[in-house]
Design a protein around this nucleic acid. Structure first.
Length: 207
DNA sequence: TCAGCGATTAACT
DNA sequence: GTTAATCGCTGAA
């Protein structure tokens, strides 16, 4: 009998802080949870993230203050889920940060599976466990996150949320570097706004 | 209205 | 290492 996992949801104050890079960094180690049918849970510990700094960040959908149906969610208050669809087949799960009206967000790029691994395997029939959640599109599939999750309040604990864990990564356990897949962003593509847990096998790429 | 492309993945060589 | 898959978003027409 395994000890039950404590479930203390992150509150609004965690997300609305002004320093998005700090929020991104501190999301490492937190648990991303999606309740399953029948009362179970599917969850994983965050091990890789990328920060997107809104109007000032050429790599962000909200660069220049762009407001469209897709990006509108980025302008919500910190603690809102921003989910979008890319490449015609993949969803990406982000956490909106900062106060309402400031379109910053943190993309969750990888998690280490904790609960509901069988459910993940049903959605993603892969041979290696590492393949379940080692990428932003993969983890959305594994957790069942799609566009209907866009705009969800992460502090309400309804369809998706983040929790505290006992894991706190020390500075030397965390690496940072350029974000993935944002070559179009000019100099902003080089900014070290990707953070990951050094040596964790679920991180999507080395570097 | 529509061409071009993307915060990716899997399956190739 | 390369590339097909696949469709919503964007911006120009």
């Amino acid at each position: 009998m395994r000890r039950p996992i404590a479930s203390v949801r992150l509150g609004r104050d965690f997300y609305t802080r002004a320093d998005t890079l700090a929020v991104a960094r501190e999301l490492l180690g937190k648990r991303l949870v999606v309740p399953a049918e029948g009362g179970g849970r599917v969850s994983g510990r965050v091990v890789e993230v990328e920060a997107y700094l809104g109007a000032e960040d050429r790599a962000a959908h909200s660069f220049g203050g762009r407001r469209t149906r897709r990006t509108e969610t980025m302008y919500a208050a910190g603690g809102t889920a921003y989910v979008f669809f890319v490449y015609g087949m993949h969803h990406q799960f982000n956490v909106v940060t900062g106060p309402a009206g400031r379109p910053h967000a943190v993309l969750v790029r990888a998690v280490e599976p904790e609960e509901g691994i069988e459910s993940m395997r049903e959605r993603r029939p892969v041979s290696k466990e590492r393949e379940l959640t080692s990428g932003p599109g993969k983890l959305c599939r594994a957790l069942g996150i799609d566009l209907t999750f866009d705009g969800e309040d992460l502090t309400a604990g309804r369809r998706v949320w983040l929790e505290e864990t006992r894991v706190v990564y020390k500075p030397d356990e965390v690496a940072s570097g350029a974000r993935i897949g944002v070559d179009y962003a000019g100099e902003d593509a080089l900014r070290p706004w990707r953070f990951w847990v050094r040596g964790n096998e679920y991180v999507s790429r080395k570097g």
